[in-house]
Design a protein around this nucleic acid. Structure first.
Length: 862
RNA sequence: GCUCACGUGGCGGAAUGGCAGACGCGUACGGCUCAGGACCGUAUGGGGAAACCCGUGGAGGUUCGACUCCUCUCGUGAGCACCA
């Protein structure tokens, strides 16, 4: 009939404290030189992955990571750190623009509304962000510096000798435009008709767009690219020192995809079957290069395959084969990426009529084209070694090409199809050499003769950086006589035109091209009409948080050195976010960071020292939350019923932060009961039904057993927060609260400590109870956010008597209580005297007795 | 296919190589209540009347002792995917 009675008045407490924190600027972190800055305090930078403010508002996944960082931030503040804990909005990009198109409103409007909604929702959860540092990637004062950083990339090159980005002025070659870190290229791109834009490789999943799942086709277009491949080795090597999950490091390594091997030149045989005379190329390509990780199997190369798209195909195909080759290429072109990469399909191919010369043995081998060789990797051509490569074997068997075994497995296993490390055979130059030595030997032999060279290949491609969309940063670039040039820094920020019609044109021409006035820069010069991808703004936002209102520099030197530097570990001290950004955002941000580091704008070579991925929260049915299943939980609904503190604590109590776990409303209820028990430790209802200070709260000394559990809790909660084991920290606090629930007198000193320990988890409840205790007890005073975190006293954890486990042959038989200082001999004697032990031993001889001091005695019988 | 991670009660989960199942949910019984989907208490891995026996996906191994370390295997999830 009437509304469910609230277990404690969180509906009044929570808004009260949220307003108080705002008013008191409780969580503002001063920068060096600012008021209240204390140089004695160490810094701690704890960062969330800032959200795209979509129209749907928060889902339960957002606050999972945010609560974790908030607990750490509040804990570190109490521990005496100057804590940078900011929040902002990644508001440019496809999701925001798709939403705007769907609702028919201008993205400026929808973004403003969505940001307001997100912000009010975050505030309702009680996060201790320093809102004075809020940034928004779509704010001209912000993207001015995104554009500025792009100009740094544009005006830099990668010097292979120093392995660093340097200003383009240090490049003395003929064509600086050919080496810039931001460059224009005509490249085959992922064109998405539905979205009206090109996408980065990273944004295409199984031949469909990551956003929306629309079809993506390959198509050559003129695009801006960022030369991330130049940094491949550093992005790989410098992962080592980072405190990141191994799985994320593995994903990045896999994405960069470094493989070592050799490029080998195969001469094209002339029509008559003899090798082309050197120095005469004519219309036929003199050589074809292949990349291989197994140069030691060169003698087994019995044919060659060139990717169908490879331009060499036109040059080498004989007249007799031209028709069938063209037919085959037509078939391939008609296939989607998805069909082409379908692994289960049979190998296909077509003979070019040409032959290559195997440089090791001079044999003529046929050159085929086949779609299992990709134009985009290596040289777009391979040597076919069917005996030792499953794909080549399948191909050779289908087209009846010769197979030659050149590798002996270490044990007596089958040679055909073996692809591991073994011994080279049937290979005169490297006969009987183990694989490693054989690779080295044959590569040196090829190098001496100019037939090949050791080579490293990467899967990583340069980053396609332009989009044909409206809602992104315009490039600070102008075009004059078909040549690009940088916009002067003084003209930043370059704002996009205020278009009414911002929808994609569908032709590949960017929407900005519709703004004729805006495009015109001067006589003979016009603006670039592409925009930057969503990732641009998120590549450096963590730097802007250090100094968000600086209008002279993207980040001031002193704030950058203070927050990002500061010895070890450098950079962001703790970065928590979803695993979905493992390769995209995290790789791009590291790349930009390294460029800015090389150009001496930054103190550390890496941005994020410690990274943690929170696990996904599933619906109550164990399925991924989705409208389709009707299992979506809205955080605000939960807060209405149980309060923000219960919501926060439940999200942390569910299980390990990094683990995937299903939601449970019953679980929220359990945590809510725990918080209500904390409330009732201190409060009771009077006759009128009002909450008043409980008479049980007294200034008495805690009992010895209470002190022990209290200090065990201080110890465990402290270390659990450091290791992000919030679920077990809460368990321990539950144990503490359970221990006090039935105590007739609740010592104020113990309650005070409990409130401090629980404060990072349930900040509203503990703030209120702290204030109530402070009204009556002199031992509690001030604001709970300004207190010192308690230290545990190890001596209080030690007991006079301890329980010793008695085992026979490793099996538990009994437990005895002995004095703490009992000697090993005494323990052994006590064990042997024990009835249950004697029963278990029976008549058997005792072979050995293992005594672990303070733990157990294990009796081993023979 | 390759790589990585993970398999523990009815459920979420806990356990520096040393008492498996902390804590919570659920369930049962009891108390307090006009009432309870509130609160408090007790019990709760399986089998057995009990003594005890069996138990961390499965099979081996290392060890006085294994959820924990090693090998193989099965299952689940994630990532990559004809990467030469």
């Amino acid at each position: 009939m009437n509304e469910r009675r609230k277990p404690y008045p969180f509906d009044q407490i929570e808004p009260k404290w949220q307003a108080t924190w705002d008013k008191n600027r409780s969580f503002h972190a001063p920068n060096p030189g600012e008021e209240n800055f204390d140089p004695a305090k160490p810094k701690f930078y704890v960062l969330d992955m800032f959200p795209y403010p979509s129209g749907a508002g928060l889902h339960v996944g957002h606050p999972e990571g945010y609560t974790a960082t908030d607990i750490v931030a509040r804990y570190k503040r109490l521990r005496g750190f100057n804590v940078l804990h900011p929040m902002g909005w990644d508001a440019f990009g496809l999701p925001a623009e798709q939403y705007a198109i769907k609702t028919g409103q201008h993205p400026v409007i929808t973004t403003r509304e969505n940001v307001a909604k997100f912000k009010s929702q975050l505030k309702r959860i009680g996060f201790s962000y320093d809102w004075e540092r809020e940034v928004n990637t779509t704010d001209p004062a912000y993207y001015k510096w995104t554009q500025w950083i792009f100009l740094q990339l544009y005006n830099s090159w990668f010097n292979p000798e120093t392995r660093k980005a340097e200003r383009i002025s240090s490049y003395h070659g003929a064509d600086p435009d050919g080496v810039r870190l931001a460059y224009v290229a005509e490249v085959p791109v992922n064109w998405c008709q539905e979205l009206g834009t090109v996408l980065a490789n990273e944004e295409v999943i199984d031949g469909k767009s990551e956003v929306g799942g629309f079809a993506v086709a390959r198509r050559p277009m003129r695009q801006w690219m960022l030369r991330i491949t130049a940094f491949a080795d550093r992005l790989l090597d410098e992962l080592e020192g980072l405190d990141w999950p191994d799985s994320i490091k593995a994903l990045q390594r896999n994405w960069i995809g470094r493989s070592e091997g050799a490029e080998i030149r195969f001469a094209i045989a002339g029509r008559g079957g003899s090798p082309q005379p050197p120095g005469r190329s004519g219309s036929i390509a003199p050589t074809i290069k292949v990349f291989t990780t197994r140069p030691d199997t060169l003698y087994g190369a019995t044919y060659m395959v060139v990717a169908p798209e490879n331009p060499l195909v036109d040059q080498i195909t004989t007249e007799e084969q031209r028709e069938s080759i063209e037919t085959y290429r037509g078939e391939i072109a008609a296939k989607s990426d998805l069909e082409r990469t379908d692994l289960s399909k049979e190998k296909t191919g077509s003979f070019t009529g040409a032959f290559a010369i195997n440089p090791a043995n001079g044999e003529r081998i046929p050159i085929w084209i086949a779609d299992y060789v990709m134009m985009g990797y290596g040289t777009g051509a391979i040597m076919g070694v069917p005996a030792h490569d499953a794909r080549d074997l399948e191909f050779a068997q289908k087209f009846e090409l010769p197979v030659r075994i050149v590798l002996q497995p270490p044990d007596g296993r089958e040679s055909l199809g073996f692809a591991g490390d073994g011994t080279a055979i049937n290979s005169p130059l490297i006969e009987n050499l183990p694989t490693e030595a054989a690779k080295q030997e044959i590569t040196e032999w090829l190098e001496e003769r100019g037939l090949g060279a050791r080579s490293i290949n990467y899967k990583l491609r340069d980053w396609l950086f332009s989009r044909q969309r409206y809602w992104g940063e315009p490039f600070p670039i102008i075009w004059r006589d078909g040549k690009h040039e940088a916009l002067p820094e003084s003209e930043l920020p370059l704002e996009p035109p205020a278009l009414e019609d911002f929808k994609p044109t569908g032709t590949g021409e960017p929407p900005l091209a519709k703004a004729k006035d805006w495009i015109r820069y001067s006589d003979g010069a016009s603006r670039e009409t592409n925009t930057m991808p969503q990732w641009a703004g998120s590549c450096w936002y963590y730097l802007r948080f250090c100094d968000p209102r600086n209008d002279q520099r993207f980040v001031g030197e002193e704030p950058e050195q203070y927050w990002m530097g500061g010895g070890k570990p450098g950079g962001v001290d703790l970065y928590i976010g979803g695993v979905e950004h493992a390769v995209l955002h995290l790789l791009y941000a590291r790349f930009w960071h390294k460029v800015l580091f090389d150009l001496e704008y930054l103190s550390t070579p890496e941005p994020f020292q410690r990274l943690v991925n929170q696990g996904m929260i599933l619906g109550e049915d164990g399925r991924k939350m989705s409208k389709r299943w009707g299992n979506v939980i809205d955080p605000i609904d939960v807060i209405e019923i149980y309060g923000a503190d219960a919501f926060r604590c439940y999200e942390m109590f569910m299980g390990p932060l990094v683990q995937m776990k299903p939601w449970s409303m019953k679980g929220v209820e359990g945590v809510s009961r725990f918080l209500a028990r904390v409330w009732r430790l201190i409060m009771e209802e009077n006759q009128a039904g009002e909450w008043v200070l409980s008479g049980g709260v007294q200034e008495v000394d805690p009992q010895k057993s209470e002190l022990k559990i209290l200090h065990a809790t201080i110890k465990k909660v402290s270390s659990d927060i450091e290791t992000l084991s919030f679920n077990t920290a809460i368990s321990q606090m539950m144990i503490l609260v359970n221990a006090f629930t039935n105590a007739p007198a609740k010592p104020v000193s113990a309650l005070r400590t409990l409130l401090l320990l629980l404060n990072p988890f349930a900040p509203h409840l503990t703030s209120e109870l702290w204030q109530i205790l402070a009204e009556t007890f002199p031992g509690v005073h001030g604001d709970i956010t300004r207190q010192r975190w308690p230290d545990h006293d190890e001596r209080l954890l030690i007991e006079d008597e301890i329980e010793i486990v008695l085992q026979v042959n490793g099996k538990l038989r009994d437990k005895i209580t002995v004095a703490l200082d009992a000697t090993d001999a005494a323990l052994e004697a006590a064990a042997l005297a024990n009835k249950k032990v004697q029963n278990a031993v029976g008549g058997q001889t005792i072979r050995k007795v293992v005594v672990v001091p303070k733990k157990l005695v294990n009796i081993v019988t023979g």
